[in-house]
Design a protein around this nucleic acid. Structure first.
Length: 922
RNA sequence: AGGCCCGUAGCUCAGUUGGUCCAGAGCGCUUCCUUGACACGGAAGAGGUCGAUGGUUCGAAUCCAUUCGGGCCUACCA
């Protein structure tokens, strides 16, 4: 084992090398298991990043968590499929290419649809893979052989199939409805793509003259320009102020059109004047009211939100210019009754920020209720579990109050709707392939509907379309339902909910291969139509000040920049260690810096190991290669010394904790356990304790050193495997180095994950070790207080409360001398409690023999503090023990441990008091 | 309008079903140490009664209510 490793760990080159190795060797490619497969299966779909995407912290967190879970499963013997791909991202990509064209002075419409789409494809081929390349560098252990793109021919075929089926089932319909319209993108967008913002606006009150009377009705509006399309005034039937006007008409100002006064619950007496203008073509509520009263729908705007010919004198004006003009004209005519400050919630396009205009237009919709009901049940019944649990409720609420989904977009880039219109009879035909002639009139003059589908339509199908649907494939039998979905809450409704709806609907009746289902630990009766069995929702990554990262704020932290400085492993570790389920992550660079130090610590521990093994047992490799095959605990570990028994026990406990934490997505707990074990136990104590065995005298018996080396290598090998899912690169590098190119597997990623062996738990060793550590720390502490020169060894006196403790300390005398800087240990027969400057616990007293007088005042101060603490503890404990209710109701083990604790506190208090007396503290 | 989350050391955060957690970690801070794995290191230490109030309980950072402060999501109120 070469130990000419650099002194400091340099992640850059090492990480790049392994990332490339993993891809080149196709280590994570999964062949479809044949019939008779009995291994468990784990399937995870990568939420497809947009082709326009660049890796940001959100991706990094998402991918880190997925990769940890995926590597963990793979190492536990699951057939593990992690499926990568990219999303065509309709609006985003079209915009990107339009901007590019703009720079060339070209416009989309001039180019024409066909040429434009070809341009987008070119762009996609050129730049669309950027984010996946970044993923490769991160070491994401996905199956690159199965990479997909949402507009691949097979996936597009599945999209058409789904559309046609839904249409045939009556779940897709087309109609004129009010939709959210983005005038900038010139397309309809779904409710979810609208962001509401509270803004300080105005509420204008306008007077409409009642026909045949000198009266006016005053209405209030935030969008006065829409009055040009008013087709009625509504008042509430119960509102007595207006009873006398029922059935009358008003003259619509500016347009000089007579419109009726209707009674409808749309008008609420408490609001404003209680009368409301009705504009069916420009407001969803008014639209509904219009249907109830058979009112005409007058659309006064075009697709750019400019006023059209229906707006009379205002035609051609932009909507906001028209608003100004309308207000001005009303004012002039004395019809503007008031202008009041008003905070309104303004809908803006999620992507461009343009104020969304509710607009009447011909669109395609999915009748969502039947799909949503089924999707709701899937979560309610526990077929799909969601972690953290609060998202479950959010999901269910949303599914309950859901509206039909507008799926058509007036874009060019995307899956074109498989519907054709007959030029002759206007018949609309939905079909899998272009029909030759009109089904109704026989005309061959057919034109495909121009609209494309909402991007989320196709991504909602991915759990089954990526596995070959609509064909009945073996992949579907094996990998559907997916095991898990890890994603952010921001696309809970956009994507997650849609996948569940589509999955449950189209995979109804599907059955996973029973043998695989059983092996994977799923109950036989579980429904297999769901797209995935578990969902983990991860948090948002914020900046160090907890602010949401955004380009406009300029506080975006570039993960690649962080990686460059600290390494991928350290960055991953940061995200894992900070990812407590349900809480956002305030990304803090200083943490990453700390975890780079951790990587360095591991690196140097490895150097230390190599240095010794090379000297003592060259060619030594871990045990019998058990690391590749599953085994409990650590094989071939000798437990002759206290530190060996102790570290083996600790390793097994940590292993149990880490496995447990990963199983419940407590990434932070897994990371922290590993960190504390590796640094705080393995490096700080174990390595220090084995050093004497390794540093044997020239010519002396080296058998103890040999055993120590074997232990060291076996332990290190196991610890690297434990670490690997979180820090794949450094663990791979050191692991490969241990085997010097003769590794039993192509990668540590293909070895077995450690499993705890209860037989290797050793409570006795842990207790003894704790006492030994206490003793050593006490002596160090005394030395510091006595200001003993670091290099000076001091004699110490020890009083052990029990013979076993004395014998344990005797056995480990060398360790105490070395680690505490003691040169001679004298065991005394009586308590040292009264000796000034002695320390003690309920197990032992220790005293450093040193001529320098301790600072009595400072010592008194310290003792006083300690006494206070002890008495506080005793006080509350005694209160409880004196409480009959407590004795009666608290569990026996709690009472027992409290008694024990109290007894120890009492001893400590006695010692402290007598010491204070001795020192003459006041 | 409805719903959700957070408020624990100077800073950033842990603390799973209430009990040995009246409390931990990292960074920062103080003192000391370049001892052949590591100064991206080692040793010792200071520092918080868990936003506030009230309640439930034998027992609460942990459950409930109210309140203050911060953040988020959903919604067709003119």
């Amino acid at each position: 084992m070469p130990h000419e490793l650099p002194k400091a760990y340099e992640p850059g080159a090492i990480e790049a090398r392994w990332a490339e190795h993993w891809v080149r060797e196709k280590l994570f490619s999964v062949a479809t298991p044949g019939a008779g497969e009995t291994r468990p299966v784990f399937t995870l779909l990568l939420p497809p990043p947009n082709v326009t995407g660049r890796l940001h912290m959100g991706h990094m967190l998402n991918q880190t968590q997925m990769d940890i879970i995926v590597r963990w499963h793979r190492m536990r013997g699951f057939i593990t499929l992690w499926l990568p791909g990219t999303d065509h991202a309709g609006i985003a990509t079209q915009m990107m290419v339009e901007k590019q064209l703009e720079k060339e002075g070209k416009k989309r419409r001039e180019l024409g649809r066909e040429k434009f789409v070809e341009r987008v494809w070119e762009w996609k081929r050129e730049y669309g893979g950027a984010i996946l390349d970044q993923m490769k560098r991160l070491g994401a252990s996905v199956d690159w052989d199965r990479e997909y793109f949402t507009m691949d021919e097979n996936l597009s075929h599945a999209v058409r199939e789904v559309f046609v089926r839904l249409y045939e089932e009556g779940l897709i319909y087309r109609g004129n409805y009010i939709v959210n319209w983005c005038p900038w993108h010139e397309t309809a967008i779904s409710d979810l793509e609208v962001k509401h913002e509270e803004v300080a606006g105005k509420l204008w009150e306008i007077r409409y003259p009642v026909v045949g009377s000198s009266e006016f009705i005053t209405v209030a509006t935030t969008r006065p320009e829409t009055m040009l399309g008013d087709t009625a005034i509504a008042v509430n039937a119960k509102d007595e102020r207006y009873t006398h006007l029922h059935g009358k008409k008003v003259l619509l100002p500016l347009m000089k059109r007579e419109i009726p006064i209707i009674t409808d619950d749309l008008a609420q007496p408490e609001f404003g004047t209680g009368a409301v203008k009705v504009t069916p073509a420009h407001d969803p509520n008014d639209f509904q009211a219009g249907l109830r009263h058979n009112l005409p729908q007058i659309n006064v705007m075009d697709e750019h939100a400019h006023m059209n010919q229906n707006a009379g004198a205002y035609a051609g004006l932009d909507r906001f210019a028209a608003r100004k003009r309308v207000l001005h004209d009303l004012q002039e005519q004395g019809l503007l009754a008031a202008e009041k400050d008003y905070t309104l919630s303004l809908g803006k396009c999620d992507r461009c920020g343009t104020v969304v205009e509710p607009r009447l237009s011909l669109q395609w919709f999915i009748k969502i209720k039947p799909l949503a009901d089924r999707a709701k049940r899937a979560v309610e019944s526990g077929e799909i579990t969601i972690v953290p649990e609060n998202f479950r409720q959010i999901y269910l609420n949303w599914m309950t109050n859901i509206y039909d989904w507008c799926i058509s977009r007036q874009l060019w880039w995307g899956h074109r709707i498989p519907a054709w219109t007959c030029a002759g009879c206007k018949e609309v035909m939905v079909a899998r392939e272009a029909p030759a002639k009109c089904a109704k009139c026989g005309s061959a003059q057919l034109e495909q509907v121009a609209d494309v589908l909402d991007t989320w339509f196709s991504s909602g199908l991915l759990p089954f379309t990526t596995l070959g649907w609509p064909e009945k494939t073996r992949d579907l039998d094996v990998f559907y339902p997916n095991t898990l979905m890890i994603t952010g809450f921001d696309i809970l409704f956009f994507w997650l909910a849609r996948m569940i709806m589509f999955g449950c609907h189209f995979m109804q009746g599907h059955q996973q291969d029973p043998a695989i289902k059983k092996a994977s630990g799923e109950a036989e009766k579980k429904d297999d139509s769901v797209p995935f069995r578990h969902v983990y929702i991860h948090a948002l990554v914020r900046d160090a000040e907890r602010q949401k990262m955004s380009k406009t704020k300029g506080n975006v932290i570039d993960p690649l920049h962080i990686i460059e400085r600290f390494g991928t492993d350290a960055t991953r570790f940061t995200l894992a260690a900070m990812a407590a389920p349900g809480t956002d992550i305030a990304f803090n660079e200083s943490r990453t810096e700390g975890y780079r130090a951790f990587a360095n610590k591991i690196w140097n521990a490895a150097r230390f190991m190599f240095m010794n093994v090379d000297r003592i047992e060259p060619g030594l490799r871990p045990g019998d290669g058990r690391g590749v095959r599953p085994c409990m605990g650590i094989a071939g570990f000798s437990t002759q010394t206290l530190e060996d028994r102790w570290i083996l026990s600790r390793f097994n406990r940590v292993t149990a904790d880490v496995n447990d934490a990963l199983g419940t997505y407590r990434f932070h707990e897994a990371a922290n356990r590993i960190y504390d074990f590796f640094w705080g136990e393995f490096c700080d104590w174990y390595l220090e304790l084995v050093k004497p065995r390794l540093n044997f005298e020239e010519g002396a018996d080296r058998s103890a050193a040999r055993i120590a080396c074997v232990n060291l290598v076996n332990l290190f090998d196991a610890a690297l495997r434990l670490l690997h899912p979180v820090m794949p690169f450094i663990s791979e590098e050191i692991w490969q180095t241990i085997y010097e190119g003769k590794a039993p597997a192509k990668s540590i990623a293909l070895t077995a994950y450690p499993q705890a062996d209860e037989k290797q738990f050793d409570l006795g060793a842990e207790t003894e070790m704790a006492i030994l550590q206490d003793l050593i720390v006490s002596v160090r502490n005394l030395r510091a207080e006595l200001k003993v020169e670091p290099k000076v060894k001091v004699p110490i006196e020890v009083f052990a409360h029990e013979p076993q403790i004395r014998s344990m300390i005797e056995h480990n005398q060398g360790a105490v001398e070395r680690l505490a800087g003691a040169e001679k240990i004298t065991f005394v027969e009586n308590s040292l409690a009264k000796v000034a400057g002695a320390r003690g616990t309920a197990r032992f007293d220790v005293h450093v023999v040193y001529e320098r007088k301790i600072d009595a005042a400072a010592e008194c101060e310290r003792l006083k503090k300690e006494l206070e603490k002890l008495e506080r503890g005793m006080g509350s404990g005694q209160r409880q023990l004196g409480n009959e209710q407590f004795l009666a109701k608290a569990p026996a083990n709690v009472v027992e441990s409290l008694r024990k604790q109290q007894a120890e506190l009492a001893i400590m208090r006695e010692k402290t008091l007598s010491k204070m007396q001795e020192l003459g503290c006041s």
